[in-house]
């Protein structure tokens, strides 16, 4: 997928910029993008290590089992192929909870770990050859989708932006945010379930 989209983005952008005289901006984009990636990665290393560490502790306690039990019915519906893998379910539960609490910094590292566990599981089943690209399993697809849906109890970023712009009531938008998120997430899940079914 990215092998096709990525070059297209670059080719179109450069052609368009040359044709319409935005070549100066393109030059700055080339340098800025690497800088942005470095800034993000450096800030990610710290939170990644911190939360991977905290997660390791959490996974060793009974707390996570309790959370898993609560989320179990939902997880079984969304991820039918990993019903029996407790470890992956733990990681997914932690990711969903972190997202829900608005701890994006915590959710991402945990989520990436969950993806790697699911990938290993996937490789085991299919006996995949090394150095070959694998397909995403259905659970991996669903997991990515849930993470793109931004299911959040308190959307802190937008509150602070609204506050900084002098809103009289920064938190006024919370109910429409909840409703829109739920609609978006449900339609995404429904759409993906349909697509997976059609593939079979």
């Amino acid at each position: 997928m990215l092998n096709k989209i990525w070059p297209l983005f670059i080719i179109f952008s450069i052609f368009y910029a040359v044709l319409f005289g935005n070549i100066q901006e393109i030059n700055s984009a080339i340098f800025d993008s690497t800088e942005n990636a470095i800034t993000i990665t450096i800030s990610l290393v710290g939170t990644m290590c911190l939360w991977s560490g905290i997660m390791k502790i959490a996974c060793s306690t009974s707390l996570i089992n309790k959370l898993c039990r609560i989320l179990n019915p939902i997880l079984n519906f969304l991820f039918p192929d990993i019903k029996n893998s407790k470890k992956i379910k733990k990681e997914i539960s932690m990711n969903i909870i972190s997202n829900f609490l608005g701890l994006g910094n915590a959710a991402t590292p945990i989520g990436i770990k969950a993806m790697q566990s699911m990938n290993n599981e996937n490789n085991k089943i299919k006996n995949a050859e090394k150095n070959k690209y694998n397909k995403l399993s259905n659970s991996m697809k669903m997991f990515i989708l849930i993470n793109t849906a931004s299911i959040q109890l308190i959307p802190t970023t937008i509150f602070s932006i609204r506050k900084s712009l002098g809103s009289k009531n920064p938190t006024q938008i919370i109910v429409p945010v909840w409703l829109a998120t739920i609609c978006a997430a449900l339609s995404g899940i429904f759409c993906l379930k349909l697509l997976i079914k059609r593939e079979k």
Partner: peptide, 23 residues
């Protein structure tokens, strides 16, 4: 989420996720 995994990004995910965004 797919970085460093050696997986092909599947069209389904992209379609469903963008559909969710549109909704």
């Amino acid at each position: 989420y797919t970085a460093g995994l050696k997986v092909k990004i599947n069209k389904d995910v992209l379609i469903a996720a963008l559909f969710a965004d549109a909704v």
